[in-house]
Amino acid sequence: MGTPVRDMAAMVRQPARRTGGRKLSLMNLFLYLVLSALSIICLIPFFWMVSTSLKDRASTFQFPPQWIPDHFVWSNYVEALTVVPFDRYALNTFTIEFFVILGQFLSCTLVAYGFARFRFRGREVLFMIMLATQLIPEQVTMIPTFILFSKLGWVDTFLPLTVPAYFGNPFYIFLMRQYFQSIPFDLDEAAKIDGAGAFRILFQILVPLLKPALTIIFVFTFTEVYNDFMGPLIYLSDPDKYTLAIGLSNFVSSFQAEWNYLMAASTVVLFPLLVIYYFAQKHLVGGIANLGIKG
C-alpha cells in the first residue's frame, strides 16, 4: 500500500515545462487521439457503474445493453442504502478514520521531529532501520499481531484498527522529516533563546509550517483506511461494527445478481474517495512540490 503514496507524490511535483509555443502538429493530433482513447478506457468502468445503478432489473440483463437507461430509476439508491444500514457503516468507517488520522498526525510529527532536530547516538542507524522495515512483507507479522490483539480482548472493537497508527508509519515519518529539514534551524534557535521548550517549539512554531505534509498524510491515510478490507474482515464480526468495505462485501451475498442495487451501493461508497482525490489534486501541488523522493 506504500506505492500509491509515492505515485501521488511524484505526480504532483510535475511542473508544466514550457518550451516555446505549442503547435498543433500532426504529431500532437495523434497524441490527443491516443490519450483520449485511453482516457475513455480508463473511465468507462465508472460510467458503466453509474449507468447500471440507474437501470431497472430487466434492463440490467438486456443484451445489447443500453448505454444510458431509458428512464433513471433513482429509487435503486434508496433501496440499496436502506436494506442494510449503510449509515451505520459510514459512521463506523469515519470513526476509525478519525482516530487513525489523529494517531498518524501525532506519532509521525513527534518521531520525525526527533529524527530531524535532535542529535543522538544511533540516529542514522535507526533511521535506516526504519526505512528498511517498509520492505518487510505484511503477512510475516500479521498472525502474531492478530493473536496479540485477541489475547488483549480487542477483537470486535476498533482498537486493532486504530491503535497501531499511534506508533508511526515509516513512510510518513520519512516524508515529515523531509519537511522538517526544509524549515530553517534559526527558527528553533530563536525560540530557544526566548526560553521555549522542545514541545512548545514543535507545536507553536513548526507544526503550523508543516500543514502541507499533514495534508498529504491526511489524504493518504484516509484512502488507506477507507479501502482497508482485510483488517476489518479479520477483526470485526458484529454487524453493528462493520465498515463500508465489509458492509459492501456482505451486501453482495444478500443481493446476489441484482446488479443495479450493487452498483448503486458501489457508487455511493466510491463517492467520498472521488471527492478526496479532487481536493487532493488542488491542495497537494504546492505542498509536495519541493519534496525530493528518490528510490
Binding site: 457503474m49 447500471t52 479501502n227 459492501l248 466510491l270 489534486q281
Partner: peptide
C-alpha cells in the same frame, strides 16, 4: 489526462472489485 489516468490507483477496494465482476 494525468489526473484521469491516476484515478484507478486511488479508487480501489471492494466497490471496484465488484465493478470488475460485473464488467
Amino acid at each position: 489526462f494525468r489526473t484521469i489516468f491516476y484515478i484507478p490507483s486511488v479508487i480501489t477496494g471492494v466497490a471496484v472489485a465488484m465493478l470488475w465482476i460485473w464488467i
